[in-house]
Write a protein that binds this DNA or RNA. Structure first.
Lengths: 150, 150
DNA sequence: TCATAAATGTTACATTTGTAACCAACAATG
DNA sequence: CATTGTTGGTTACAAATGTAACATTTATGA
């Protein structure tokens, strides 16, 4: 009876664990970008992306961050309104624009980056350097996986 | 200049990785409970919980699944409407009710459990049994962590 | 080159979610 | 016991999100 092998506990079902871990680990963070800069999660995500990867088009952000284009579109609009970023026309292809952090945006980014870094170090300490490292590489592996066609 | 040590790439920033991994790993799954049973993600989560842990009150589900009570409340209502679960009055304390999967609900649960199990096995294969196992235990550790007060 | 298709974003509308107010049942305190 | 507070759950309203239709620009190809 291999049926017994079937998952009857969700405590070790990966999608659930990942969801919970993501929740827990981002909840603390939220208050920083929210209370201090009035940003939403998606806005912070877009900003972090621009700040760390560099200027990009919306499309590129969508692809790299696994975010839907409407989400990005709205986040960009909000960030623009708050003067965190500006758009630059790309003459070669006028469908998309290059999104760049303003000085103000860069300031916010670097401040939040420091918080993020501290946070990460705390986590590293709690988990132990080894597990921390393994966790990261395993997650990267998981994300890069060709779509699991269940 | 230790500033260089600061995260300038988000590729290894845990909250982002977790979010993406959670997204990727649950997206496939979605189509199963959605197309076949018309369930939303939260509904599926509640059902899975009841199915694997056993009958529970809404409160218990909230706590164990890290879900907000309004989310659970609405999911329960929806599942009830679709005849996946029923409520049983608890005489000892009439504030809460015990939530139980109906026969119909149990059928759905066990079918979805099989899919989940296959999915998990695929993942285990892709990641390797070792990494898979480590990932799970590390995530559990992370979730159980006292709130990281950044 | 003209028509058609595809890519990039935006917007409108419906659905889902979060926050706060609320109700009912119970607990604790005077 | 009243009275006050707490807990479990629901609901109303506002905010965020997803889906689908749309506009605009670029690519394709007869």
């Amino acid at each position: 009876m291999t049926q017994e092998r079937a998952k009857t506990s969700l405590s070790d079902f990966l999608p659930f664990l990942l969801f919970q871990a993501a929740e827990v680990s981002s909840r603390n963070f939220q208050q920083h970008y929210q209370s201090r800069y009035g940003m939403l999660r998606t806005e912070w995500r877009v900003m972090f992306h621009l700040g760390s990867v560099g200027d990009q088009t919306a499309k590129q952000i969508c692809d790299r961050a696994s975010l839907h284009k409407t989400k990005v579109s709205r986040a960009v609009k909000a960030l623009e309104r708050k003067r965190f970023l500006k758009r630059i026309t790309i003459e070669a292809d006028r469908r998309s624009e290059l999104l760049c952090l303003t000085k103000h945006g860069k300031t916010a980014f670097s401040e939040l980056t420091i918080v993020a870094s501290n946070f990460d170090q705390q986590l590293e300490q709690s988990l132990g350097a080894n597990d921390h490292k393994t966790l990261i590489t395993t997650l990267q592996k998981l994300i890069a996986l060709p779509q699991h066609n269940t």
